[in-house]
Design a binder for these strands. Structure first.
Length: 1034
RNA sequence: GCCUUGGUGGCGGAAUUGGUAGACGCGCUGGAUUCAAAAUCCAGUUCUUUCGGGAGUGUGGGUUCGAUUCCCACCCAAGGUACCA
């Protein structure tokens, strides 16, 4: 017996098997120890070669969440890693860094709940992330790691903030300039000649006025020009999170994180003047190779529209300006007109009323005493409705007449001024000229309130709906615009308006300035203190970083200040250049520091440049480093960052370019959005029963939870009744109750609902492991209705811990190896597509790796064996067969093309075909197997390194030159032609490859199968495409 | 509504300029090996069929000798966006 066991054991000596666990651990250790993937600095003094071509491959760095990685996370990293490794084989100096976007809300909320400092949570999570990432065998250059929450890193985030504060945007030169240049102009000539991106309410002043302003007044004016500025503005306030949110952090009117309601609130906040860059952000899209959907969503977000601004004079009898708010501020000039923005100045003669947003500042001034009550009531009722309600309910038409009239710029007719909540305060000027015949919303409003709808279109019926087809527009009833098509009419209308000084051509953008303050703890502190006048002042650059203070509570203070308000040492001593106790604040030399922190996107907006020189404490990066690395060659990440990170980063990059620090004004040449890997959640259906009865004169409520079938659920959902299976079970339970002495048994309440089951309890054929499932705490109290194997229902949805459908990469690595995981993630489908994860499929790629291993292990006991060629390599062996060479070279060609096209799924299948063919050919030749190892290496680097070493190499395979494709091996002497009849392939015929058209035709026609197909008919036509196909028509 | 992407076997997917539809893998079926299982290997696997063939890439048209691929209309799904004037 013992003998037998030993004999069998000996037959498959473990050493000869593909022992992926041992191999992968060995090479991961080797890479770490040898710093194999360290990108070399261009500096020759550090052994670098500034002439070696660079290639910068970047992943979107992760937020280290407590849940760890699931198999969906590494997808993009694997793709970028393959590309990075491929570029190393091509001889590039590749930089492939990784880091952590480690400021953020989850760590802070955990801190609020547990009191644990977010830095500790973050550190723990990062450690776990790193362990998980290391197991997958990425070629990251960890010596360049950055963490956004590290003071040595956020020093430079604060630095950029200061630079933005000290800059303004000159529209004439179309770039950011130093704020000092602006001050110089103000001193000499005031601001009338300045063409700058600035606040709308910036007043004009002369040089002498400027000089007479107080310092505070000057500072206030400069804030209107700075690229980051403090201003009171309407912000999205999320009471549940206790913080403001940017537009891109709100989804469907609720917060992206947590789904809490958001309301509008006026607050003084830091903002970024991204709107100054709107046009350049739009133009830059043309120059970069990014996915079209992503470019489109940025284009929509920026929302450029061309049109005109038109001023409508307000007609007397002027409403009692003394009566409204004007009384409080007698110096304020009442506005004499209402400015609107329109994309259709050609329809100006169709204006029959005007509509203002309820929040429009002129509303209280315009409203006549008779209408005041109605208007106030309307404003109050719209203010009550949340953003979400207003969005959900776009069909209800509401509005109210203000009693006031404006004057039409051309006809001089009076135009009634209405307010309506379909006009948004936040877009354009918050007022529109309503052209009911040309705009459906205006049309509906006019119909609803019985306002006239004049038709100004030639030959168009507007009795049913508005006409908005610009292309088919011919203007009528419009004085000088009569007979003009859309484009000409627009030009003419603008020309006439400009002549009268009542309008001009204008381009409007939807893009708003980005609110940059957050009322949170775990973020970058602003390098800002407030002086005796309450004006913000920047810390000296030398004083950075301004480190986050310790607080004993991470919640807002009792007075409603942000969490930093809890810090006892959060004052700036100007003399010492140090943070000191709040008690020392005297507003002379010690000042309060800013209590807000920066938003999540602050740290991610320049990290890609910081990777170029991450240890530099003197500058964000050295000139040499950025001169060499320039920009990102390939950036891979999720499309959900389209209107957040990717837009803000482009904005900061353009600023860095304007200031001369960055050589490129776009930071990433090519970008790919990897798709999501979805999970397949599992469900059981649970019948919840509530049975009430009496026993021993006590009222008893018995709850039972029974696992029933999907069909029970379906029938319950259809008619609200339980099906036979359930009712039998219910009756059995009731009988038991009765037998046990239950009295007054009431009709039980029943509810069937789907319940998620953790996928670890389900096997590949969807059968539930009942024992393990019932042993789990989450399923306590559950009973099964039937003894038969339970088949769960499946649904594909986002992979998430809360959906119990997470697959952990560590477990896959443990069971199949990192190389299998890498190959399988790529094999699943096209990179950019979202696709469901199904672990059972991994046996396919795992089997491939075993077959690959076997190709190199053909000794009598499965030990390593490859043969050298006869013609080279010492002449001891035999040359590879022509067949094997053909297999190799077609693989080289396909794999190289696939990597260039990011078609990684097809190259995995190419490898499979190649190994299947070489196995069939019994190929053992070094001349084939050595290049094959290099081909496989970007995808399955561990096994490739192991085989490379066994082939006798002492250096890592990672820089071995990529095999060169030689077309001569693919030349064929014959071609198997598909012979089709009327486009349908019927049979194949092998013909010499160099056979001419006529000969092919003759041979095919003479063939017996052709005659069979034709059944005596004469073909009408014969198409011969040499090398491709023969098609016989007839 | 608008914009974008996509729709191919039981499943993931392939077909790069119009030229053999379903590569490769999973799953499934049968077989070999094994006391047995795992592993491995071999064969088959779009549907349909009277075994000749016929149909077939979301639907309906069109262009073409030939269409998954190009054009038109529509349907469905996913993502983005939305009283944006």
């Amino acid at each position: 017996m013992n003998k037998l066991i030993f004999a069998r054991y000996g037959k498959q000596t473990p050493k000869m098997q593909y022992d992926f666990n041992q191999i992968e651990a060995k090479w991961q250790k080797y890479w770490a120890e040898h710093q194999t993937f360290k990108a070399t600095s261009p500096d020759p003094s550090q052994g670098g070669d500034p002439l070696k071509p660079k290639f910068y491959v970047l992943d979107m760095f992760p937020y280290p969440s407590g849940a760890g990685l699931h198999v969906g996370h590494p997808l993009g990293y694997i793709a970028s890693d393959i590309y990075a490794r491929y570029k190393r084989h091509q001889g590039y100096n590749v930089m492939h860094p990784q880091g952590y976007d480690s400021f953020g809300l989850p760590a802070e909320q955990y801190a609020i709940q547990t009191g644990q400092h977010p830095a500790i949570t973050t550190e723990t999570n990062i450690k776990r992330y790193r362990e998980q990432l290391d197991k997958i065998g990425f070629s990251f250059d960890w010596s360049r790691e950055v963490r956004t929450s590290d003071p040595r890193y956020y020093k430079w985030t604060q630095w950029i903030f200061i630079q933005l504060f000290n800059s303004w945007y000159n529209k004439d030169t179309d770039r950011a300039e130093d704020i000092e240049t602006l001050v110089q102009v103000f001193e000499k000539a005031g601001n009338s000649d300045i063409n700058a991106a600035c606040d709308d309410d910036t007043p004009s002043f002369s040089a002498s006025e400027w000089q007479q302003f107080s310092t505070k007044q000057q500072q206030e004016l400069l804030l209107k020009y700075r690229l980051t500025y403090l201003a009171e503005s309407e912000v999205n306030w999320c009471p549940a999170l206790g913080t403001v949110l940017a537009n891109d952090e709100i989804v469907n009117g609720v917060s992206e994180r947590g789904g809490h309601p958001v309301v509008q609130k006026k607050m003084t906040q830091w903002s970024m003047r991204i709107s100054a860059y709107a046009q350049r952000l739009l133009d830059g899209l043309e120059t970069i190779d990014w996915p079209q959907p992503l470019k489109d969503s940025q284009t929509n977000w920026i929302g450029r529209s061309e049109g005109a601004s038109v001023t409508f004079k307000i007609l007397p009898p002027t409403p009692s300006f003394g009566g409204g708010r004007g009384e409080d501020k007698p110096n304020e000039q009442p506005t004499q007109g209402i400015e609107v923005f329109t994309t259709r100045p050609d329809t100006i003669f169709g204006v029959s009323f005007m509509t203002l947003a309820p929040e429009h500042e002129l509303v209280p001034l315009l409203t006549t005493p008779e209408q005041k009550k109605a208007v106030d009531g309307y404003i109050e009722s719209t203010a009550k409705r949340s953003e979400r309600e207003r969005m959900a309910d776009v069909k209800t038409i509401s509005g109210v007449f203000t009693g006031a009239y404006a004057e039409h710029p051309f006809t001089k007719e009076p135009i009634p001024i209405w307010i309506g909540d379909y006009v948004l305060a936040g877009y354009g000027t918050g007022a529109v000229m309503s052209v009911p015949c040309g705009d459906q919303r205006d049309y509906d409003f006019a119909k609803h309130f019985d306002i006239p709808i004049p038709n100004i279109f030639d030959g168009v019926d507007i009795s049913e709906e508005a006409f908005s087809d610009k292309e088919k527009t011919v203007i009528a009833n419009s004085d000088f615009l009569d007979g003009l098509p859309y484009k000409k009419a627009v030009k003419r209308a603008i020309f006439e308006l400009e002549k009268m000084g009542q309008g001009e051509g204008k381009i409007n953008y939807r893009l708003r300035d980005a609110v940059f303050s957050r009322q949170r703890y775990w973020g970058e502190p602003f390098p800002v203190y407030y002086d005796a006048e309450g004006m913000p002042q920047m810390l000296d650059e030398e004083c950075l970083p301004l480190e986050l203070p310790e607080v004993d509570k991470y919640l807002p203070t009792e007075t409603g200040e942000p969490p930093l308000g809890n810090a006892t040492h959060w004052a700036w001593d100007l003399k010492q250049s140090a943070v000191v106790s709040n008690q020392l604040i005297d507003h002379q030399t010690v000042f309060p520091l800013e209590l807000n922190t920066m938003p999540g996107w602050a740290g991610s907006s320049q990290y890609f440049n910081r990777y170029m020189d991450p240890q530099n404490d003197e500058a964000i990066f050295s000139k040499e480093a950025i001169a060499y690395w320039q920009d990102v060659d390939l950036y891979i990440g999720g499309s959900e960052h389209a209107t957040g990170h990717l837009l803000y980063s482009r904005f900061w990059q353009k600023f860095m370019f304007d200031k001369g620090w960055a050589p490129k004004d776009e930071f990433a040449k090519k970008l790919i959005n990897q798709g999501m890997i979805t999970g397949t959640s599992a469900f059981v259906y649970v019948l919840e029963l509530k049975i009430r009865y009496e026993r021993d004169s006590k009222h008893i409520l018995e709850n039972r939870r029974l696992v029933t079938s999907e069909s029970s659920y379906e029938s319950w959902r259809k008619d609200g009744k339980v099906d036979k299976l359930c009712s039998e079970a219910v009756n059995a339970i009731l009988k038991k109750v009765k037998d046990g002495g239950g009295k007054n048994i009431q009709e039980p309440e029943a509810l069937i609902s789907p319940n998620r089951v953790h996928i670890k309890f389900v096997d590949s054929s969807n059968i539930l492991n009942r024992k393990d499932f019932l042993d789990d705490i989450s399923s306590s109290g559950l009973e099964f209705l039937s003894e038969e194997p339970y088949v769960v229902s499946r649904e594909v949805e986002k992979m998430s811990k809360s959906k119990y459908n997470v697959v952990n990469p560590d477990e896959i690595c443990e069971q199949y190896g990192a190389d299998s995981l890498r190959l399988y993630e790529m094999f699943l489908g096209p990179l950019e597509q979202s696709k469901p994860w199904n672990t059972s499929g991994i046996t396919g790629v795992h089997g491939f790796l075993k077959k690959l291993w076997k190709l190199y292990h053909s000794g009598p006991n499965g030990e390593f064996k490859v043969t050298n060629s006869a013609s080279s390599e010492g002449g001891q062996g035999e040359d590879p067969s022509a067949e094997s060479l053909k297999t190799l070279h077609k693989t080289i060609k396909k794999v190289a093309e696939d990597i260039e096209n990011f078609s990684f799924n097809t190259s995995v299948s190419t490898f499979m075909i190649c190994v299947n063919e070489l196995t069939a050919q019994k190929c053992r030749s070094r001349a084939i197997l050595e290049p094959l190892a290099i081909l496989v290496s970007p995808y399955a680097p561990h096994i490739a390194e192991e085989l490379w070493e066994k082939l006798g190499h002492t250096e890592s395979i990672s820089t071995a030159p990529f095999p060169i494709f030689d077309a001569t091996y693919l030349v064929e002497s014959s071609k198997e032609y598909p012979i089709s009849f009327n486009g349908k392939m019927r049979f194949k015929l092998k013909l010499p490859a160099d056979m001419g058209k006529e000969d092919i035709e003759a041979t095919v026609l003479a063939h017996e199968k052709t005659q069979e197909q034709l059944q005596g008919r004469t073909p009408k036509r014969i198409i011969v495409v040499p090398g491709k196909i023969v098609n016989i028509v007839g």
